[in-house]
Structures are given as structure tokens and as C-alpha cells.
Design a protein around this nucleic acid. Structure first.
Length: 574
RNA sequence: CGGGGCGUGGCUCAGUUGGCAGAGCAUUCGGUUUGGGACCGAAGGGUCGUUGGUUCAAAUCCAAUCGCCCCGACCA
């Protein structure tokens, strides 16, 4: 490809539109343009990279017997009502009506659609297992689109769905899919980590995320040298707490006018939050829950969703709190709660360590102190409900009686694998006949990778002040060929010869044949991040050219006769 | 949705006691240059986000509205 004929509108100035490095670089290099918030146009350079990533993924999916399909974007409401997700997916679902006033949505994910195909077309265990995947646009009306294509409202994704006759087969296949994802990450050439994750709206029994490690990542990862790694949303906080050995004191009500927050209460009682029973009223799918947690910890709402199999967990509004506790916000507690048959009181394990604790008295301007579990209040169940903190220990090592502190990193979620079980086959009555002629629900798995996000995440990790640094596997071109002065007859001749030779060798080469100064060409070459740069100039002709890797600072001279070989080894090496 | 910021040539931005709409870069033409975003000269390009108001006069003051970015609750 000759650059003079290639539409690559690079920007000298840094766009003021965004703060994210990858987003700035994708705009500056002419990979994408923004049409509207979270909606992007992919220009030739960007699309070349997208196709590279797509092909890597396709190859790995085919290796695990995936069959590529193309599913529609415009989806009828009925299927979504079968699983209840027409309601659950909420505002994130783009909804629209046709001329007959029928409801549709733009597909944010395709479990319903693929399950519908399989229940209609797959009847026998002999047709299992089966895995289908597709590449396609997904639509999600994100609360806040940001970071360029990283969190877009319209994005490009590979989604895959597998169907199995038995749990065992589903489990084995899940591992294969995870291994395929690792290979994809390896081939793309970024540093990543596979972590345990919360399943969220897709649902299912358990799931793993693939995180590209980057300081700017939205996700936090907790990990240990033993191999344990998890999204901090999911990180287990084991039941390590023992009650303090102190004499139990009698309960005492204390007048605490206008003392509501943990800080206020700490100052008033001149004690640390470790002695507080923080009491929060939540609505879990609309039902009231009181959650107790030690004053120095915070509630992890993602864990609540998992523990209570809920899709919606929100802090109750002040009116509801007052109705349930009989006191305004700031004075809730488990002691002497007004009679309420529907209220469940659940406690984080950390509550076990609180002896002679302090909590709200469910009475305006009053707290109680010296509260003790069982004697003064009842808890219907204990669970792991808290957010992990910096000094927490590894839950796996703890099982082996070792206390090793967790380590923390940040990451960008590019892939997510789910063991769905029968979540969708059950609600959609998707069954097959087994060898005994008995009807069974399909056991399912699903596996998603954000293709457009992988690109942004890669750039986020692999860049320097001059621009992007592509690995040969993802680079839009493998080699950029720069003649210092293409108007010089000798330079032009040598450049054309090299260009044709490389093309014949099957190398993807971009020839910068523009009538620009050398500096401009070098700047653009660095910006768009082509892994190998070959510079042709009268300085080194007739027999040598300059050779430079984007990832390294130094240059070297290569004999024209050796060039072909050198290029090949170089591209393979990286 | 809550909080903060911003909308002025293609891009980055300047422009309040209200008084002819600017610069650099980019583009086109001419010339000089030519190994890390050159220089000189000339030219084209803007209903100052939109609507309404105040005023002899509004990019500038007021109101509403739309859009975009950043920080928090969603997710590949």
C-alpha cells in the first residue's frame, strides 16, 4: 500500500475530546473518528487492526470446534420476555418499535437468540456438544460511555455459546474455552491476567474475566503468588473473625443528637469504627434487607447480588429507612427494631468480631452501646458481603492456614467466560433427548470478547510518548518503508525495488511515498506504531538501508542483499 | 441521574468596561529548503452549538435548550 493512496488522517495536535491515552492515539493515528458519545467510525487503519484481532479469535474458536454464525441485531421483544430480561436489562437495552407498533431491541448479547435456534433445531444428545460463535455489533445504552471505543454504546464483539448434554462435558469444555482465550491473549501480545469474576446480568454459576493489565484500567484485581486472582468485586473475604475476649457489658442507650455518620459516632464515643455495627437498609429486588457490617468495612453490592441471587440491589431511600427502622437515616441498628415480618437481617462475617458494639437505636438522636450478638440482636444469616481491602489475606492460602497478603493491580476487562448451566435453557424450555429417550435441559456456557475493546486495551498498555507500539500480530502493516526523498531518482528506484520484493515475500508493507520532509514521515510512522521501519536514503545507498524496530530506540544498517531474510526473522521474533 | 468543566475556521486555542471575528497548525498556489512535525509570500475557509431576551449595538450580559468531556452507580 502506498501512503499517498491510503486514507490515514493523522492529527498533529492532541484531541481535547478525551483524557484516555488509547483514545487520543486512536484518534491521532487516524484509526477512528467519533460521531457521537460512545459511537465511533472505524477508518481504514483501524479496521485493518480490527480484522487482525478478529482473525486471531476466529482461528482459536475454530480450533475448539466453534461454528461461525451471523445472528440478527434487531431482536423481537418476545424472546427477551421469555427469560425476563426485557425487564431486567433495564435502560441499557436500546428499544424501538416497528410500523406495526411491535417492540424490538438492538441486541446487547445473544443468549436468547442462540438458545431459540438450538431448542428448535437440536433434538438429540447425538448432536451435542455444539458451540456457535459470531462477530458482530452489540448495542448497549451505557450509563456513561467513556474512554473512546473502550466503553462504547455500539461496539464490536465476538460472542460464543456452547451447548452440552452433561455438566461434566460443559465443565471440560469451559476449560477448553478458557485455554482458547489465553491463546488469544498470548497471540495479541499483551500482558494479562485471568481472574475469577462476578457474573452480573449474564448470570450463571461462575465466570472468569481476562484482564489486560494497565494502570488506567477500570477494574481492580486482587491476586496472590499462589495463583489466586480475582476481580475485587468477587474477591473472597474468608470467615476469619473471632470475637474479642472481653467481658460483656450491659446495653446502654445514649443520647447522640445530630450524630449520624461513622466519623461523628467515632468522635462522640471516642473509639474506632472497629467497634461499630454499621447497619444499612437495602432493597434487594424490592425486598427490604438490613445488612450489618463492621464500621471499618464497606458493603460490596456485587457480592450481595450473588449471595441473594438478585438482579437489583440498592440502598433504600430515606423514607423507606424511616418506615422500617422508625428513625431517620443515621440511627438504624439491629437492636429493638420495630416488628417487621419481611425484613431479613444479614451480617457480614466481620460482625462476629464485634463485642460490646455500637449501633443506631432506631430512635431519633439515639445510639446504643454494648450490643452483643444473640444476647441483644439476632442475625438470620452470615455471609461474605464486604469489599476487600489492602491488608486482606489470600483466601486460598488461608484455607491452608497461611496468612499471605493479597496484591493489587488494575486491569481492563477484554474477555469474560461464563458457566451458564441451565439458566437460559430452563426459562426457554430448551431440551434434547438423551440416550434413554428422556428430555433434558441443555447445559450452557457463553464466552465473550470485546474485539474493539481489545484494541484500545492493547494501546493503553503498549505506547510511548511518540505513539502506538504494535506487535506484528496486530499491526495494520508489518513494515513501513520510508524513502527520505522519493523525488530523488536513485532513492525512488531502490525503494520501489525493496517495496516489490517485500510484497512478493508476502510482507504487509506501507510505502510512505508522500512528498513530505523526513521528520514528518518519521513522526507519523511512530504514531501509527508500525513494528519495523526501513529507511532508504542517499546516505546509505547504493547497498545499505536503515533498519529500526518501533519497540527499540536504536537503528542499524542492513545490506540490501540480506534485507528479505532480516525482515522475516524480525517479524517472527516479535 | 448527581457533581465539575467545555462548545469560536478542518485541528489546537485566544478573544468582557458589549463596538468591523483572530492566531498557530492544516488546505490551495508560487518560491527557498530537504535524515525527526522547515521557512517566506499569497489565497480560500466561521450564521461564534441552538432558540429567545436585554441593547442603538451581543462571541461577550440574561434565560432556556442541545451536545461533548471528566468524577461516581453498569459491562466486553
Amino acid at each position: 500500500m502506498k501512503l499517498s493512496k491510503f486514507f490515514m488522517p493523522t492529527l498533529r495536535e492532541v484531541p481535547s475530546d478525551t483524557d484516555t491515552i488509547s483514545s487520543k492515539l486512536m484518534l491521532r493515528s487516524g484509526m477512528v473518528r467519533k460521531l457521537s458519545s460512545g459511537i465511533y467510525e472505524w477508518l481504514p487503519l483501524g479496521l485493518k487492526v480490527l480484522k487482525k484481532v478478529e482473525q486471531i479469535i476466529r482461528e482459536e474458536m475454530n480450533k475448539i470446534n466453534g461454528q461461525e454464525v451471523w445472528l440478527p441485531l434487531l431482536l423481537p421483544k418476545e424472546l427477551w420476555e421469555e427469560t425476563g430480561r426485557w425487564g431486567i436489562y433495564g435502560k441499557e437495552l436500546f428499544r424501538l418499535r416497528d410500523r406495526k407498533d411491535s417492540d424490538f431491541c438492538l441486541g446487547p448479547t445473544h443468549e436468547e437468540i442462540i438458545t431459540d435456534i438450538v431448542r428448535k433445531e437440536v433434538r438429540s444428545y447425538k448432536q451435542l456438544p455444539a458451540m456457535f460463535y459470531q462477530f458482530g455489533i452489540k448495542f448497549r445504552d451505557e450509563i456513561r460511555p467513556r474512554f473512546g471505543v473502550m466503553r462504547a454504546r455500539e461496539f464490536y464483539m465476538k460472542d460464543a455459546y456452547s451447548f452440552h448434554a452433561t455438566e461434566e462435558d460443559a465443565g471440560n469444555y469451559y476449560q477448553e474455552a478458557v485455554n482458547a482465550y489465553k491463546k488469544i491473549c498470548d497471540r495479541c501480545g499483551f500482558k494479562y491476567r485471568q481472574v475469577e469474576a462476578a457474573s452480573g446480568a449474564i448470570g450463571g454459576k461462575y465466570s472468569h474475566e481476562f484482564m489486560v493489565l494497565a494502570e488506567s484500567g477500570e477494574e481492580e484485581i486482587a491476586w496472590c503468588d499462589c495463583g489466586y486472582a480475582s476481580n475485587t468485586e468477587k474477591t473472597e473475604c474468608p470467615d476469619t473473625e473471632k470475637p474479642k475476649e472481653t467481658a460483656l457489658l450491659p446495653v446502654e442507650e445514649v443520647h447522640t443528637p445530630k450524630i449520624r455518620t461513622i466519623e461523628d459516632v467515632g468522635a462522640f464515643f471516642k473509639t474506632s469504627p472497629v467497634n461499630f455495627i454499621k447497619s444499612l437498609v437495602y432493597l434487594v429486588d424490592g425486598n427490604p434487607f438490613m445488612v450489618l457490617i463492621r464500621g471499618d468495612y464497606e458493603v460490596n453490592e456485587a457480592k450481595m447480588k450473588e449471595v441473594f441471587s438478585a438482579s437489583d440491589v440498592v440502598l433504600a431511600d430515606p423514607a423507606t429507612i424511616e418506615k422500617i427502622t422508625g428513625a431517620p437515616v443515621g440511627f438504624a441498628g439491629p437492636y429493638k427494631l420495630p416488628e417487621n415480618k419481611t425484613l431479613r437481617i444479614v451480617a457480614d462475617y466481620s460482625i462476629k468480631s464485634v463485642v460490646n458494639g455500637i449501633a443506631g437505636a432506631n430512635k431519633t438522636d439515639y445510639h446504643v452501646k454494648n450490643l452483643n450478638i444473640d444476647r441483644d440482636y439476632k442475625v438470620s444469616e452470615f455471609a461474605d458481603l464486604r469489599k476487600v481491602i489492602k491488608n486482606d489475606i489470600c483466601p486460598r492460602c488461608f484455607q491452608q492456614n497461611k496468612k499471605i497478603n493479597l496484591q493489587f493491580s488494575r486491569g481492563i476487562e477484554v474477555g469474560h467466560t461464563f458457566k451458564l448451566g441451565t439458566k437460559y435453557s430452563k426459562s426457554m424450555h430448551a431440551t434434547f433427548l438423551d440416550a434413554q429417550g428422556k428430555e433434558n435441559l441443555f447445559i450452557m456456557g457463553c464466552y465473550g470478547i470485546g474485539v474493539s475493546r481489545i484494541i484500545a486495551a492493547y494501546i493503553e498498555q503498549m505506547n510511548d510518548p511518540n505513539g502506538i507500539i504494535w506487535s506484528p500480530a496486530l499491526a495494520p502493516f508489518e513494515v513501513i518503508l520510508i524513502p527520505i526523498d522519493y523525488n530523488d531518482e536513485k532513492t525512488k528506484q531502490a525503494t520501489d525495488e525493496i517495496y516489490n520484493k517485500l510484497i512478493n515475500d508476502g510482507v504487509e508493507v506501507l510505502l510512505d511515498d508522500r512528498d513530505e520532509r523526513a521528520g514528518v514521515k518519521f513522526k507519523d510512522a511512530d504514531l501509527i506504531g508500525i513494528p519495523l521501519r526501513i529507511t532508504v536514503g542517499s546516505r546509505n545507498l547504493p547497498d545499505k538501508v536503515e533498519f529500526k524496530l518501533r519497540s527499540e530506540a536504536n537503528t542499524s544498517l542492513v545490506m540490501l542483499s540480506d534485507l528479505s531474510e532480516k525482515v522475516k526473522t524480525c517479524l517472527k521474533m516479535n
